[in-house]
């Protein structure tokens, strides 16, 4: 139950974020979720898109430095305590979150949480054993 996340290296200078989104738009790639992490020198743009393999190819062809990483998506009810209940399970299992971000579903009244872990396979197994429902790529993209 892992989904593909595209990451793009972005130098801290005007117009670079626009350049990425323009390339994706021109190639009709739809963003499902994104997060931007930054330091004083550079930023890392993380994207969940509808066609990750295409996005990877297109961005590379446009000379961006791109990576692809597996992350975990978890669906929670869009209400107080949604995130907390998931984090409680992770805390109990002593799982360290590298980073996370979230987006809200319009149709379903749910929120989807994206998690990045270091030792992904083990974590997925543990979470699975704890009964946490993780979404498949198809579920994330179609939700």
């Amino acid at each position: 139950m892992q989904i593909k996340q595209i990451s793009v290296f972005i130098e801290n200078k005007a117009g670079r974020l626009y350049d990425v989104s323009k390339v994706l738009t021109e190639n009709k790639i739809n963003l499902r979720a994104l997060s931007l992490a930054e330091t004083s020198d550079f930023g890392i743009l993380r994207l969940i898109v509808d066609k990750p393999d295409d996005a990877l190819k297109i961005l590379k062809a446009n000379e961006f430095t791109v990576g692809i990483t597996n992350v975990v998506a978890v669906e929670v009810p869009d209400q107080a305590g949604g995130l907390c209940s998931v984090l409680a399970i992770m805390d109990e299992a002593d799982i360290n979150v590298e980073y996370m971000y979230a987006f809200v579903e319009k149709k379903s009244n749910h929120a989807i949480l994206i998690f990045r872990f270091d030792n992904l396979e083990d974590v997925v197994d543990t979470l699975h054993a704890k009964g946490l429902k993780m979404l498949s790529e198809k579920e994330v993209l179609s939700s």
Partner: peptide, 18 residues
């Protein structure tokens, strides 16, 4: 200049290269 072999989606890994 960065390249794909050292690029990571994690800030701390890139900072550790610096």
């Amino acid at each position: 200049e960065i390249n794909e072999s050292i690029f990571s989606d994690e800030i701390k890994k890139l900072e550790s290269i610096e």
